[in-house]
Design a protein around this nucleic acid. Sequence first.
DNA 1: GGTAGACCTGGACGC
DNA 2: GCGTCCAGGTCTACC
Length: 303
Amino acid sequence: MRITLKACLPFSLYSTVRSHGWHQMAPFSFNTEPLVLEYVLQLESGTIAQLEISETADGVRARTEESITSEEKKELKQKVTWMLGLDRDFSSFYRLAHDEPKLARMEAKAQGRVLRSATFFEDVIKTILTTNTLWAATKRMNQNLVEQFGTPVKKGSSQKAFPTPTRLARTSEDVLRKETRLGYRAPYVLELAESIKKDDINLESFKNSDLPTEQLRKKLLTIKGVGDYAAANLLNILGRYDYLPIDSWALKVVSFEWYNGASIGKKEVETAFEHWGDWRGLAFWFWDWSYYKKSEKESDVEM
DNA sequence: GGTAGACCTGGACGC
DNA sequence: GCGTCCAGGTCTACC
């Protein structure tokens, strides 16, 4: 089965996929030759579809070998549109970015979209796994979650979908802590899965919520394991750019950019992007950091 | 509202 | 191979 979807132009599959590290996390995988994004998607009906998404002249083509119903096809279209932000229009931001040398490239590279998971639940769990740990450990915890609790494409297949809240709610904190190696994050993941199962929280409604960003942020902060950084990161994923995800990396690159490497706090980061108003999260996310130019120069010397 | 300490894993390092 | 140190956000208790 194949579907083609049009994107609001400009669009680049490569730029969207490489917008952050999600493409390195199961059930995503990404090949550059040829350019294909793979994802194991679990539909509402329970059907598992192994998707191969490639770029077309004006959008994407999604292919799966599984036969699916017309209702499932409709859901698949909605999910792919959401994951790649195909309907997102960044023209107002591009007009502002043209005058900023650190962002002026964005329109030509069709940057602005961030890769999202099929469900907001998956994005919240993955964000919790990024906190207070190294990237390698985040990937390992996520891999363990998918391997241990994900539904396979076919019986015996190693390709599995991200676990559903219902499936995770059936496990125990002890298993998540010791076997999935989530450590102190285990009760947070379990509590969230249980809350969704009991309908205490509907994370998927956050995708198209009319609530003001501040109220949405407050709701996110009620989730155990989601603090200021994680909430801002999740708001950016939802397309709300009013908050900056300030972690230790942000302090480092902003300090290098404007404070000559001196020790700084959150306030300095916020001040640096204040004038971008409602777009500040997006400007921050795609800023062309001098810190990396310096690193490249140093590695050039070493070579 | 601000701050200190605990939480937990895994990589780096020294022995 | 073993032990120690450190980095990484959030939570909770306390002031």
